[in-house]
């Protein structure tokens, strides 16, 4: 039996979910900018010719890749205020998601840089470029093409991970679904609806990633001389 009435209840309250979706988009979008910024800087520094700097990037990446996102979010939300720093919950979400995903993105960028032949860097040096100039004008533009597909996957992960904010009253999509369902007892409807809404955000991204990957493969095979 299809419980039409329950689904209509959900449709009637669509605005409540739409507001949650808006908050998810806002938190994810801002976190993405932060993560990309951190990822590019740390990625470039992680292959820099300066050993202490490389060491520091390693510490950052290993720490954030190997500890749970929930722990970071709880630390910022419950822990920091006791040190006199009380960030609004949106800032907590952006910071936690951005710094966490930044660690993954920096690894993607590093792999991209390392996939570019070393001769490119040597050629740039011979033309008088500094390390950072060579990265900016020679290496990164080429690496970016290679890293687009894995980068997009990280964006998808970031959006999915934003559901963690429900645990700290983040007022985003998952939080709204939790509150609404436990009040109306319509768990199946609520969580099905939010799954579909998350899909609306992530599926287009995932599809773009696959298409970029295919285009990349296609171009490379064409570049192979006969």
């Amino acid at each position: 039996m299809f419980d039409l009435e329950d689904w209509l209840t959900l449709l009637r309250d669509w605005r409540y979910f739409a507001e949650g979706l808006g908050q998810t988009v806002k938190a994810s979008g801002l976190a993405l900018l932060l993560a990309l910024g951190i990822g590019v800087v740390v990625g470039v520094l992680s292959v820099a010719p300066w050993r202490p700097v490389r060491g520091l990037t390693r510490v950052y990446v290993e720490f954030f890749q190997n500890t749970p996102l929930v722990v970071h979010a709880f630390f910022l939300y419950y822990g920091l205020p006791h040190l006199g720093i009380s960030l609004p919950v949106l800032a907590v979400g952006v910071l936690a998601l951005g710094v966490y995903t930044g660690a993954y993105i920096s690894e993607v960028i590093r792999a991209g840089i390392q996939s570019i032949h070393r001769g490119q860097l040597e050629a740039a040096y011979s033309q008088g470029f500094t390390y950072l100039q060579a990265m900016r004008y020679i290496i990164l533009p080429q690496a970016f093409r290679v890293v687009m597909p894995p980068l997009t996957n990280q964006m998808v992960n970031l959006i999915k991970n934003s559901a963690v904010l429900a645990m700290i009253a983040g007022d985003e999509l998952m939080y709204r679904a939790d509150g609404w369902s436990s009040y109306n007892f319509l768990y199946r409807q609520a969580y099905t609806a939010v799954a579909l809404l998350y899909l609306c955000l992530t599926l287009p991204l995932a599809t773009v990633a696959r298409r970029l990957e295919q285009r990349l493969l296609g171009r490379e095979s064409r570049e192979v001389p006969l």
């Binding site: 039996m1 899909l199 696959r210």
Partner: peptide, 25 residues
């Protein structure tokens, strides 16, 4: 390819929903 993957995703979810309804009823 884009259209196909969207359709596949939505279909998969639809099946899950229907299965859920059946077992609950």
């Amino acid at each position: 390819g884009w259209v196909r993957s969207v359709v596949a995703g939505v279909l998969a979810l639809g099946v899950a929903v229907l299965a859920g309804c059946g077992s609950a009823a």
